[in-house]
Nucleic acid binder design. Structure first.
Lengths: 171, 171
DNA sequence: TCTCGATGGTTCCTTGTGTAACCATTCTGT
DNA sequence: ACAGAATGGTTACACAAGGAACCATCGAGA
C-alpha cells in the first residue's frame, strides 16, 4: 500500500544476508549467555576449546583457519585460556614461532560438562525442524560457505575434509 | 582417528549455532565492506535506511523491533543518518517522546543507487543455490527464528506480517 | 653465510556495540 | 490534579573485535 519508490519494492525481510545475520545473532547471543554466565567463556574461547577437543593439538594458525576468526581474536582467546590453565602452550621443536596448543586436564573436565549442555541446547532448538529441514539447512549453508569463500571450509586435524554435515551418515 | 574423549565425539562443524554464525559472519562481513567503502554506511545504518525505504515512516522503536537491534545501536545509527541528512526526524504530534523518521530526498537517492547493488550482490551469491534450496533455507530460518524468540518476526509497516519469505508467491 | 621476504603471533589504536543509568514525556490510579 | 510507574530515546562506561604496525623466527637465494 505505502510503496513509494521503484515499484519492485525491496524487502529487507527477504534479503538473505540480513535475515541470516538476524537469526544467527539471536541464536548465538542466547548461547553466548550460557557460556558466559556458567563458565565465563567468550564465544571465541569456546570455539578454541571445542576445536582442541576435536583435534587434540592445534596451532593458533590452524584455529584461525578453522574458525575464520581474526588473528588477534584467536590470540587473545588463547592467551586467556592459557592463563586459566584450560589449555597449554608448548614449544614446537620444528618451528620456534608456532606454539602447539592442547587441552589440559582441567580444560577437558570443563568441556566434559559444557559439551553436553551445548548439545542439549542445540537439540532443543532443533526440535522445530524436521530432519529433512535440518539437512536442507545444513546443505544450503555448506554451499554458501563454499561458494564465495571459494576456499573450502576447514577441518584441520585428523577427522578431515569438508564435513558435508550430512546427518544421514549413521553416527 | 585421534579421538580421545567420550567416543561420541562432538563435532563443532556439525554444531548449528557455530556453523550458522560462521557463514552469516562471512557474508555479512563482505557486504559490510561494500556499504562501508562505497557509502560510508555501517550495517546498522543500512538497516535503518532499508526499513525506512520499505515503510516510509517509522519510529526508532519500530525499527528496534523490526531489526531486533539494541536500543542504543538504533539510536546511534539514526543520529548519524540525521546528521548526514539522509533521514529526517520530525516531531510527533501525538507523543512528544517519539520521533517519526523518514527518508530525505538525499536518502532516497542514495538507496536508489545502493539497493540495486545489494540485490545484485545477493543474486550473485544465490546462484549457488537452486530455487528449492533457497526456499528451504528461508523456511528453516523462519522456523528457527519464530521458535525460540517465540514472538514472531517483525514487519512494522503496511506490508505486514511475518513475511514467510516464500519465493513461490508470484512477485 | 648473509640478506631479504614470508610467516606465526602479539600489541596498539580505533570503532562499534551492549549494559545500565539517565532524562523527558505519557499513562495510570487515586 | 497529582504521584508514581511505564515508555521512547539518549548518553556514559566498559569491552570485544578488526586493521595495521610490530617482533621474532624461518626459508630462499645470492
Amino acid at each position: 500500500m505505502t510503496h513509494h519508490a521503484t515499484d519492485h519494492q525491496f524487502d529487507l525481510n527477504q534479503f538473505l544476508p540480513y535475515r541470516l545475520n538476524r537469526v544467527a545473532d539471536q541464536i548465538s547471543e542466547q548461547l553466548a549467555h550460557l557460556y558466559e554466565t556458567s563458565y565465563s567463556l567468550t564465544i571465541a574461547q569456546w570455539r578454541v576449546l571445542a576445536w582442541l577437543n576435536q583435534c587434540e593439538v592445534l596451532t593458533a594458525k590452524q584455529i584461525r583457519e578453522a574458525t575464520r576468526m581474526d588473528k588477534a581474536r584467536v590470540s587473545r582467546a588463547v592467551q586467556s585460556l592459557v592463563e586459566r590453565e584450560l589449555i597449554s602452550r608448548s614449544p614446537d621443536s620444528q618451528d620456534q614461532r608456532a606454539h602447539p596448543l592442547r587441552l589440559t586436564a582441567t580444560g577437558q573436565a570443563l568441556l566434559a560438562k559444557l559439551l553436553p549442555e551445548a548439545e542439549a541446547w542445540e537439540a532443543d532448538l532443533l526440535t522445530v525442524l524436521s530432519n529433512d529441514e535440518r539437512a536442507a539447512l545444513i546443505n544450503a549453508m555448506a554451499k554458501l560457505e563454499r561458494a564465495f569463500a571459494s576456499s573450502t571450509p576447514p577441518a584441520p586435524c585428523g577427522n578431515d575434509g569438508i564435513a558435508e554435515l550430512n546427518p544421514a551418515n549413521g553416527r
